[in-house]
């Protein structure tokens, strides 16, 4: 088994250490987002257990923030779930990108590794597998990256929940959520090619106009309009650089 625990502890341990070392800067970068998600969960009124539990169960910061923002404006559950699906669709691409490298692991371990997948784990993993295709311990490396990132993320958001519970009201702290999204959006736009800019611009414009639609459906209408506009632009003007996800995911700013 490639890099599995049975092929000698030393190679496995070395792979884990290599992963942890590569993940260190990512762990630092993730702490603010984890804190913000924790604080935001309390700000929109989730009970303490749910505010903490969300980060452990969903474990996907951007979609959690989006859900919290939608809860704050009173969206129905269906809109929140479709938004979760859209925002986390990229994980299916990552899953496809990583599958061949992690196939040596048994099914239960693959399920755990899938659960621990983040933008950062995918970015570091595929970078290492591309740079050093001959180096073994691929599973160990992935675990070395993904487990510490998971621990840091859940801990930071738990701390955020506990801090948030003690913050005074009336500071408009809920405004922090759109500011975080603004950062992520700007990063996605700046990293992207022209069809991505078209997608973002159209989605933003449609979202403002479609805002009066009931059940916050404007969000979904705008998202699909933006995606369609991006595809249309790409077909007219030639393809965007391969969307594989790697280049988009290296900002170290999203879980």
């Amino acid at each position: 088994m490639d890099g599995g625990p049975k092929d000698g502890g030393t190679a496995f341990a070395a792979g884990v250490r290599e992963g942890v070392r590569d993940a260190l800067p990512v762990m630092l970068a993730l702490m603010p987002l984890g804190l913000v998600v924790g604080v935001a969960a309390v700000e929109v009124g989730l009970p303490l257990a749910q505010a903490i539990g969300m980060s452990y169960l969903v474990f996907a910061g951007v979609s959690q923030l989006a859900a919290l923002q939608l809860i704050a404006v009173g969206s129905p559950v269906a809109v929140i779930l479709v938004t979760t699906l859209l925002l986390n669709l990229r994980f299916a691409l990552y899953s496809a990108a990583l599958a061949e490298h992690l196939r040596a692991a048994p099914g239960w371990l693959r399920a755990i590794m899938a659960f621990l997948m983040t933008d950062q784990a995918m970015a570091l993993g595929s970078q290492r597998y591309a740079l050093f295709p001959e180096r073994g311990a691929k599973v160990a490396y992935y675990l070395g990256v993904a487990v510490p990132i998971g621990v840091v993320w859940t801990t930071a958001s738990t701390v955020g929940v506990l801090i948030g519970a003690g913050l005074p009201a009336g500071l408009s702290l809920d405004f922090a959520v759109p500011l975080v999204f603004l950062t992520l959006w700007v990063a996605a736009m700046v990293r992207g090619a022209p069809p991505v800019w078209v997608a973002g611009a159209v989605a933003g414009g449609v979202a403002v106009v479609a805002r009066p639609l009931p059940f916050n459906l404007g969000l979904l209408v705008a998202a699909f309009a933006g995606i369609a506009a991006g595809l249309w632009w790409e077909t007219r003007r030639g393809p965007a650089p391969r969307p594989g996800g790697v280049s988009r995911a290296q900002g170290g700013d999203a879980t």
Partner: peptide, 24 residues
């Protein structure tokens, strides 16, 4: 679907962000 995925982050994030700042 694969190609469309490339536009999901920019589009969904825009749809969340812009109305939070601009209201007609």
């Amino acid at each position: 679907v694969r190609r469309g995925l490339a536009y999901v982050p920019a589009a969904v994030l825009a749809a969340i962000v812009v109305p939070a700042f601009v209201q007609l």
